[in-house]
Design a protein around this nucleic acid. Structure first.
Lengths: 216, 216
DNA sequence: TCCTCCACCTTGGTATACCATATTGGAGCA
DNA sequence: TGCTCCAATATGGTATACCAAGGTGGAGGA
């Protein structure tokens, strides 16, 4: 693993874990000191993360994108389009092994799981849904959404654990070959999850702002 | 405009115009000489283009991705998903000005237009469809598809000009508020365009290969 | 006191030197 | 003739020096 990749991974984590707050400005020289790497490595990592949408360019300098409820809404909307398409394309006729594999991800979550475990399971589940499409662009689109939403991941699952049940319902519909029903449940789930997240976000907005984070 | 952006634009054009053939290996030092810029600028441009999918990384070095019929199929499929979603979200109740603007793009193409003009019009039309979604991710997804397809853009419109009529039909349906019909026409158009392109590609495969290009 | 202006500093942009490693080509031996 | 091995070379990875441009703060004058 090269130094650049190391820097890229650390920086990605810092942003997703909100060690670097939304709206914060970054300079290459500051990162140089923080991450103990040369500007060359830093810049390469920044360019990669820019491609992932985890960092933006300002007129002059770099900025961690603020958390924007409208963007979150659009991300969920986009993901709904893609997941519905994935299920329609590959949701019929799954064999027992595929169902079992998806189920195991959800079942591995115990009843008193932490928000982090819930998030991991949700993340994996949605990637598995994406894989149903057998279309790398649809898969990648869903993966991108999930990554971008990671910054606010802790909000929803720390206030509600309805998501897990909704995932189970989708999977059950797929198990019985009820594709239309699975689509409907997926739509409802994504819309509900979006609403829960936005609500929790608006309620927590004040405390986030007080921690120096920018919410548009 | 910085030198890096200049390099990025030139390199993108070289790839899209197939001045650098699909499957070709690139070295940073060769590009340095070709584009008269330092490796720093070259590398920055390469990283950006990697994000656009116009260039890939090998174990060691850079490679212009081969043209892959399966990838093209998936790109069209992905685009169908996105454009249908865009029309469903924003295709109803367009005002006369919006219709007129879309129409003007298509009408600007004369009856004996070159393949290049046809391509430009098609490109713009699909971006306009994307804008209907009012969702930046759907828009960007469509724009990405169109960019990636630019390398093979000359193939379809040099063998057929059915695309233009199909675009007109979609627009007419939107003008009359017939969203479902517009969706149906869009599906048919994209599938037909994909089929035409893949057919033309397989017919031209031998001549492409003989020009040193890699078709998977 | 307040405004202007200039020197200094910080920024990203660019070029380049150096490094480790992988590849390659040819000499030399069997 | 053909195989082995090593030296030369080419590659991307990394660090760093320098640049132009834009911003900032403080000195000095009104």
């Amino acid at each position: 693993m090269t130094k650049t990749q190391l820097v890229e991974d650390r920086l990605r984590r810092m942003i997703l874990d909100m060690d670097i707050g939304p709206g914060e400005r970054l300079t290459e020289r500051w990162l140089e000191g923080q991450l103990m790497a040369s500007r060359t490595s830093i810049r390469t990592a920044l360019l990669r993360l820019e491609g992932e949408g985890l960092i933006d360019r300002n007129d002059r300098g770099w900025i961690v994108p603020p958390i924007d409820p409208e963007e979150i809404r659009q991300l969920f909307d986009y993901r709904e389009v893609l997941e519905v398409a994935a299920i329609r394309r590959g949701g019929a006729g799954l064999d027992a092994a595929q169902i079992a594999e998806m189920k195991s991800v959800l079942d591995r979550v115990s009843s008193e799981a932490s928000a982090e475990e819930l998030n991991d399971a949700a993340h994996k589940f949605h990637l598995q849904i994406g894989a149903l499409s057998k279309n790398e662009f649809i898969e990648k689109g869903i993966a991108d959404c999930m990554t971008r939403l990671l910054r606010v991941r802790w909000i929803e699952n720390s206030t509600s654990r309805k998501g897990l049940d909704e995932h189970r319902a989708v999977l059950e519909a797929l198990e019985h070959g009820r594709v239309d029903h699975a689509v409907e449940l997926t739509r409802n789930h994504i819309e509900a999850a979006c609403a829960r997240l936005l609500l929790a976000l608006s309620e927590g907005k004040r405390s986030l702002r007080s921690r120096g984070m920018t919410i548009s």
